[in-house]
Amino acid sequence: MSPESYVKRPGWFTNKVLNRTVSWLSRRGVSLAGSRVLAVKGRKSGEWRRTPVNPLHHDGGLYLVAARGHVQWTRNMRAAGDGELFHGRRGRHFTAAEVPDAEKPEILRAYLRKWKWEVGAFFEVGPDSSDEEIRAVADRHPVFRLTLTD
């Protein structure tokens, strides 16, 4: 399996209950541990697509990590290069640059320290794993550095 085809699909409960609940709360300004709603234009349809995400503030940067792998929002982000993060009704526009695998270990480690309770099942490593272990799975988890533009 190529790294680009790595996807951990959500189960029924996550897809039908958890994601919808987090999105509903976030649209009303209630954040679960900093969660937001990502809006990015679809690469084929051009329509706005929304999904709950867990932004990471790390070392002066803002990042989105795809815990489930190369999912639709990552493919759309690559094509669009920008999007919006919503908390309540307020959206913040950003541009996005994909982080090379060599730069991911520190970011993935910080992400797992903050979000392991929610996303740990989608990683074969943890926050205490070595750089070598994290590098071995880095290509399965896209990471985007966001630059807020407003």
Rank of each mutant, 00 (worst) to 15 (best):
R75G: 06
R49Y: 14
R113N: 12
G81W: 01
A102S: 14
W24M: 13
S31Y: 13
N15S: 15
Y6G: 02
M1E: 05
A96K: 10
L32Q: 08
S35T: 14
V30W: 14
N19R: 12
A138R: 00
V30R: 08
S129D: 04
W24P: 06
L32E: 04
P105L: 07
T147N: 12
R36E: 06
G126R: 13
D128N: 12
G42P: 05
R90P: 01
V17Q: 11
W73T: 08
G69T: 11
G34H: 04
R68F: 00
S26I: 07
E47A: 12
S129R: 03
H93Q: 14
D59H: 09
E103V: 00
L112T: 05
P3C: 06
W24R: 15
G91I: 02
A102Q: 14
H87I: 11
P3T: 08
A110S: 07
T14L: 07
Q72I: 10
V125N: 05
D59Q: 09
D131R: 02
T149P: 07
D131N: 11
V37F: 09
S45A: 04
A97K: 15
R109M: 00
E106Q: 14
K44Q: 13
G69S: 06
E133Y: 08
R140C: 08
A79K: 14
E103Q: 14
T95K: 13
G91F: 10
A79P: 09
D139M: 07
D131Y: 00
A97N: 10
G126Q: 10
K8G: 00
E103F: 01
S129G: 04
G69N: 07
V99R: 02
A136W: 12
V143H: 03
D82P: 02
L38D: 00
V99N: 00
S2V: 08
R68K: 15
V99W: 02
E132G: 01
G126T: 15
K116C: 11
T74I: 08
E124P: 01
H70T: 07
A136R: 15
V143S: 02
H70P: 05
P100A: 03
P105G: 03
P142C: 02
R68C: 00
L148N: 03
G60W: 04
S5A: 15
V40W: 03
H70L: 09
A66D: 06
T21P: 06
P10W: 08
R145C: 09
W115V: 06
L112E: 01
E124T: 11
G11Q: 13
